[in-house]
């Protein structure tokens, strides 16, 4: 495997990460700002002997991923906000049937058709459910092209390990910006043996992949099994990056693209002697609550998002602070470095 650094967009890095993680099946439907991803897959999946399908809709694409995963293969779909709304049916079925899958959401403005500008306003949809039923997705939020590549690969391993759908949550900036990437990094692991998969019932009892449990108590038991699995994931799979947390009096909280802007603001503020820190959640579910629970910390929190405060709730719950400040825009605007610096300066007078 090449250790060379090559220049790629976030969309392409996710696609390449998937291919190198052994993704055997991809189905998608065009939508901006993730079109580079589907084009990359169209070009490179067949070359690698894998299956690429341009589906007739996002609904068909996610249900194809359901079938591919049921057949025991690593599978992925990608889209942007309106398309992800359409996929919610399949995501719920995939969760109910405990199938591993990767779903990429390169977020754009909403609600409705919104616009094609970058946004982070699908946070609730990604972390709270989106589709029907008591289920969770592991949600990973890369902040650089390299991390988009790495987390996609890691996502496949997590999906297999827990038989769960993993969402890679990026935005239009991350999807389209170009950065150098090292195409190696963390191992996605060999696909685990899938004894439950549909392969034909040679030398064994028939397998059934389903999310339907009609018998008395059947669904409750299945749901409790899911909850047990989610508890383990909450315990083991929280990820975040923390900067200057030891002495911070004010902690910025941001993920993905806004975390990069917040980081720049942080260095400027530190340069002026402001005791500012940063928590960058990498897993949005499970939310890295531990990062907010350092004994003796008395910091205030300021979340920075390209949404109208969808993450604030999680910061409040994790930190136990009743008041959490917020700076954000969505619908086209990106909170700027200057805005963050000014807001912090006002808060720290």
């Amino acid at each position: 495997m090449s250790e060379k650094r090559i220049l790629m967009s976030g969309n392409e890095a996710i696609a390449e990460g998937a291919i190198r993680a052994g993704c055997a099946f991809y189905a998608g439907y065009p939508i901006t700002p993730q079109n580079e991803l589907i084009a990359y897959m169209a070009k490179n999946m067949p070359k690698a002997g894998r299956v690429f399908i341009q589906a007739e809709s996002e609904l068909a694409a996610i249900n194809m991923v359901y079938g591919a995963s049921a057949a025991g293969f690593r599978a992925m779909t990608s889209s942007s906000s309106p398309g992800i709304s359409l996929k919610q049916e399949g995501i719920s079925y995939i969760s109910g049937a405990q199938l591993p899958a990767i779903i990429v959401n390169i977020m754009r403005g909403g609600p409705g058709l919104g616009n094609i500008a970058p946004a982070q306003s699908d946070y609730f949809q990604a972390t709270r459910g989106g589709g029907h039923g008591d289920y969770r997705l592991i949600v990973l939020a890369p902040a650089s092209v390299q991390e988009a590549y790495d987390l996609t690969r890691e996502g496949f391993a997590l999906a297999d390990k827990y038989r769960i759908a993993v969402m890679i949550l990026g935005d239009g900036v991350l999807g389209q910006m170009m950065e150098p990437v090292t195409l190696a990094g963390k191992n996605a692991g060999k696909p685990l043996p899938k004894r439950w998969a549909l392969t034909g019932c040679k030398d064994r009892k028939p397998n059934v992949v389903k999310s339907f449990f009609m018998a008395e108590g059947g669904l409750e038991k299945a749901n409790l099994d899911l909850q047990k699995k989610y508890k383990i994931i909450e315990k083991k799979e929280k990820r975040y990056e923390g900067l200057f947390l030891k002495d911070a009096e004010l902690i910025l909280v941001a993920y993905g693209t806004t975390a990069r802007i917040a980081k720049n603001a942080l260095f400027r503020l530190r340069g002026k002697g402001r005791k500012v820190g940063l928590i960058r959640p990498i897993s949005l579910w499970p939310f890295p609550a531990d990062a907010f629970r350092m004994p003796g910390r008395k910091a205030r929190y300021l979340t920075v998002e390209m949404s109208y405060g969808q993450m604030v709730e999680d910061v409040k719950l994790s930190s136990g602070c009743a008041e959490v400040d917020f700076l954000g825009r969505s619908g086209g605007g990106i909170p700027g470095e200057e805005e963050i610096v000014n807001k912090v300066n006002r808060m720290m007078i």
Partner: peptide, 28 residues
Amino acid sequence: AYDYWNFDCSEAAHGRALAVATAIKRLR
């Protein structure tokens, strides 16, 4: 139907059987 047939089966969401089947057949 999978409770009655004695071979491997998948459920599909209402109306999506052919999307599910497409992927299974392409891979297998």
